[in-house]
Design a protein around this nucleic acid. Sequence first.
DNA 1: TATTTTGCCATACAAATGTATGGCATTATT
DNA 2: AATAATGCCATACATTTGTATGGCAAAATA
Lengths: 215, 215
Amino acid sequence: MALLFYSDGFMKNLTETQKNILNYIIYQKTKAGITPTLAEIANKFGYKNRATVQQHLQAIERKGFLKRKPKLSRSLELNIQDKFFVSTPVIGEVAAGNPLTIYPDSIDTVQLPTIAYFPNDSFLLKVKGDSLKDAFIFSNDVVIVNPNSEVKNGKFVVAILNDAAVVKRYYKTDGKIELRSENPEYQTIRIDENFPAFSLVGVVIGIYRSLERQN
Amino acid sequence: MALLFYSDGFMKNLTETQKNILNYIIYQKTKAGITPTLAEIANKFGYKNRATVQQHLQAIERKGFLKRKPKLSRSLELNIQDKFFVSTPVIGEVAAGNPLTIYPDSIDTVQLPTIAYFPNDSFLLKVKGDSLKDAFIFSNDVVIVNPNSEVKNGKFVVAILNDAAVVKRYYKTDGKIELRSENPEYQTIRIDENFPAFSLVGVVIGIYRSLERQN
DNA sequence: TATTTTGCCATACAAATGTATGGCATTATT
DNA sequence: AATAATGCCATACATTTGTATGGCAAAATA
């Protein structure tokens, strides 16, 4: 089962403001597909001056979450990949937003790539482990997840349950939700649709598999 | 045997220069993660002036492959998704290189997500049939084929044999070529490497599978 | 042949962009 | 209590950036 949890933990050293700015940058970079300028960030947060943003970025960079390329516009680089694997995950509510992070000891791990360009509102998860092998989705496959796609019975979904994220097949009947694995080694999860610790992240709309560097 | 068809040729209306520039933009946007500026494009192609690039971009936009956002830096948007769909596939003999022959009864459309990096020299094929199902490549999967990638034993290749295209696993020993299916229902093809009706098209470097419109 | 498209350059300009510096109030940390 | 970090603003400046315009030659098209 793919375990993952919502941000916050790995942003521990960041202040609230810095977190918000970093999240905005991640959002723009991954979902809108364009890195914001200082002016755009300032505008987003209501700052009257770019220098304010400038200083926040310097702080975020100092803490190792960003890489700034001097003089280059829209050149902010995220440096959070190694921050995904956190030993002490923070358990909180799973709101919309980025990024998802991973339990290091989970059987399956999912990694949210930060560099890929996303044309629409989707994002990517890299599958680790074999819980979906019987659905012909394998470790290192990249699944494309859309949070706004209609959830239908039989579709693969990414869901968060008890602060753990899973990729499973979705079935709903009479308010009861079933999350089935294709691999019989993993048990089907049955919950009520109003179960508080449950939330749907999105629908898996595609799979990408690289055969190039596979060994 | 897997019947497939070619789904490139979508840049047909573009000139060579425009193609190169568009490819560079796609590459930077998807791989490097940042949309280039006019100056960067000019520098890449050795232009002494940004206006040259400016005019090329206008041309590319006029042909519908780009969307420029006025005054906004690094804001080029790709508009190539619908260009992947070829309404009238070319039906002809199978020549070396592009375009490939299309079987009239296998007409379909393919949409490649922009997140999957698409090398300049690669093209897409949609898999038809189940000869590769035991390799977990299924009908309607889209394979990304590179004609310049090194062919090694065990790799999936696209080959043309007697005017029919196949996707199979490649093995070569002593001038003898074996094309193996993973599905035992399909026999292994054994030919001499100089067999006239045989030609290698390329190596499968990636797979894309859509789960969206699957019914 | 005439016309359009393509390809490249030069100059010019307003706006955008990243950066530097100084200031000041509030909040954490030691 | 003293010090450091955070948060925000203002001004200033050199480049960068997209854009507009004009010019010219080669290639494609009508």
